[in-house]
Design a protein around this nucleic acid. Structure first.
Lengths: 234, 234
DNA sequence: ACAAAAGTGTTTACCCTACACCCATGC
DNA sequence: GCATGGGTGTAGGGTAAACACTTTTGT
């Protein structure tokens, strides 16, 4: 037996371990997912989530952050572990376990996709027909279910909207993600009653009809409330 | 590049991958966790979750099921993936990633722990002071949080009670897991109003005071309701 | 009889729902 | 003016919280 400081070579066969990132965006009342076109085998030319093999000196989360930066030019965005996929046949090359993450990006974050190959990276509508590599269709499905479940009782919807947004924006987002209609009036009352939105009605821009008030999400207030037992819920 | 059928040896260093199982039980109004005493280095003699290296021909879930069987003599119990831990220093032997699962067992399931070394396997109260191997204290904490969160909106509490139980039993379980008092009357009204309990009041056993009615959880009914949009919630 | 625990009922306040309506703006 | 979309008000139904009360059983 190796000492507890000395490196130890296991007798066990080791699976390869990758990290994959499901990246969600919201644009034109559509939920989107960011995919990259594979430049190598297997599944060359097919679309897949940004991801790759985990390095020796990085945690899974570090790896996800690195992949977001390298492959999608994204930084400082919401990131959370999704699920670990370990089906034996999920990679034709052999045994590969994937630790999947999901990320939520605001429009302003992906506007500055500088240096990212425009041919190889694209946003797809969530319902758009696409032929994904590996078991990425299954991973996507898991991610959507997580998002649908979590958006109702955690304030993660704001991560998909610009820093400043209107209540109709937020309302649209919820209707789109949850795929059901939500009463306008009741929705705004519920949200506003939480006291978690900061009013920015001074800066208004033109709109087709009456201009909607602009708000931002009060993270500080949310943290305070959470610590005193408050539960966000739509 | 390897063909898609041929085995491929990655240039990347591979971390070792283990599976660990947090096993919860409920006994004498206490939430318990099952631990095994380590018989090998590192952390020899310390308590840890049942777990071990994932084999080449098994999924993570299969590995968890195998470990539950081999190390704790448990079968046919609730099992769900918890989280994957990948901190660099979580194992003194080197890079080891752990896919953690949590399991819920009914009293009748762990009564028949035949063939399991009584010295090496023990139930610990959740608040009992214990010195756990690796980062298992952190894993335990994550598992408890998951249980606390999930018991409120998924009928997993029943997995910790005998097949037949009383409403006071269930009430006790919820108070214990959520660590707050819940009004008796309101609790029973809420539970009963769901119509998910089957009454077995014919078989009564003696108690210190008035005997409580015996119920069991109606899984079939729950599945039906779920499919028509019902959401369990306490 | 009394204590302990099971089970029931009642009141109140709040919240959620389903609407209807008003307001501001562009065409 | 009218269509469009933002924003507000309200009546009523339901349900959750708080608490008192009744019932059953062991000692």
């Amino acid at each position: 037996m190796a000492s507890s400081t000395e490196k130890y070579t296991y007798a066990y066969p080791r699976p390869a371990v990758t990290v994959d990132c499901v990246i969600f965006g919201f644009d034109k009342n559509q939920l989107k997912v960011l995919l990259t076109k594979r430049a190598i085998q297997p599944f060359l030319g097919k679309w897949a989530f940004p991801g790759g093999f985990i390095q020796e000196e990085e945690t899974a989360e570090d790896c996800a952050l690195r992949k977001l930066r390298e492959e999608a030019g994204l930084q400082n965005i919401f990131l959370e572990q999704l699920y670990t996929f370990s089906d034996l046949a999920r990679d034709p090359r052999g045994r590969v376990i994937s630790i999947a993450y999901y990320a939520l990006v605001k429009p302003e974050a992906y506007m500055l996709e500088a240096g990212v190959d425009i041919e190889a990276v694209r946003w797809f509508g969530i319902d758009e027909n696409k032929d994904l590599a590996f078991d990425h269709m299954q991973i996507l499905h898991t991610a959507i279910e997580r998002l649908k479940g979590k958006i109702r009782y955690q304030p993660i919807g704001f991560e998909l909207l610009p820093e400043q947004f209107t209540l109709p924006d937020l309302h649209n987002l919820y209707e789109t993600v949850l795929q059901r209609s939500i009463d306008r009036g009741n929705f705004r009352k519920k949200i506003l009653s939480m006291g978690l939105l900061i009013d920015h009605s001074d800066k208004q821009k033109d709109r087709r009809a009456r201009a909607a008030k602009i708000y931002s999400f009060d993270r500080v207030k949310y943290k305070e409330l959470t610590e005193s037992g408050f539960y966000f819920e739509i």
